[in-house]
Amino acid sequence: MEKYGLYTPRVAPQKEYFAAGHRACVGCGEMLAVRLVCKALGKETIVINSTGCIEIVSSLFPDTSWEVPWMHTLFENSAAVASGVESAIKVMQRKGKYADGKVNVVAMGGDGATLDIGMQALSGAMERGHDFVYVCYDNEAYMNTGIQRSSATPYGAMTTTSPPGKKSIGQQTWKKDMPAIAVAHNIPYVATASPAYPFDLMEKVKKAAATKGPAYLQIFSPCPTGWRSAGEISVKLARLAVETGAFPLYEVENGKYNLTMDFEKLRPITDYMKPQGRYRHLTESDIVLIEKKLHEQVQELRDKSSR
């Protein structure tokens, strides 16, 4: 019986470390992800947060949603600050000025703060091997400032700086494969997760926190405002993204790939695209092209995980 985890919402930690009363949009998938991550991490946690939606909605003076120590940094340096915090704790514990025991140092950022602006600091922190967790909440554009494209925006998506028209299909480049970049740093743990699979997400966060050395998590975060979708289907969209192959869930432990959610047959990508206004302009042939590319990516992951 020990082999099997018990997965029911009732036995999940009941204590909220990310309190209600934050000002996120109605139906925000990112705040759901933050809530689940904080639940999984528990009390012994220090959060370092880049600028972005999470910081804006959770820390309007004089209110805060955080019940763990929390620090706001600039867009680019959350990983650098996290490595400093981790080193300071290590030194102070050695000198006996800080209580012994494990403290989870967690840096959080959106996809813009991770994939674009903060990447060199993150790369440096991963290369130096600090014992911290980096959590990237991937909502596929700069949603906080008004839906500008980022390098996480998928091909064909409409944003305010990649508008579709006669000469443009919307976003003209493919999504940057950040987990693969993290894997290339030879760090012990890299994973992707989705709030539609809350126990999978919480297991991965716990695993990442228990890992000695840097860990990178990319969490899919549906954004009803930026994706032009209804608020009530946020979780459904997150599930469809996994089922259609738009955001495959996998983990990489010491370079060994493992697909955590694999489906015999992927659902057609239109199921995922249809409820979203950002894909409304796509033609039949564009969708076929996108589906082919996504299936290739999933197949590549399957090949890697079976190796």
């Binding site: 309190a19 959770s58 003076f61 004089p62």
Partner: peptide, 22 residues
């Protein structure tokens, strides 16, 4: 009136904000 460095001294004080009005 505000604390030095604009530090928020009560954790989770956003709970007192009514988002139910939305």
């Amino acid at each position: 009136d505000i604390p030095m460095g604009a530090i928020v001294q009560t954790p989770g004080s956003a709970k007192e904000y009514r988002t139910g009005d939305w």
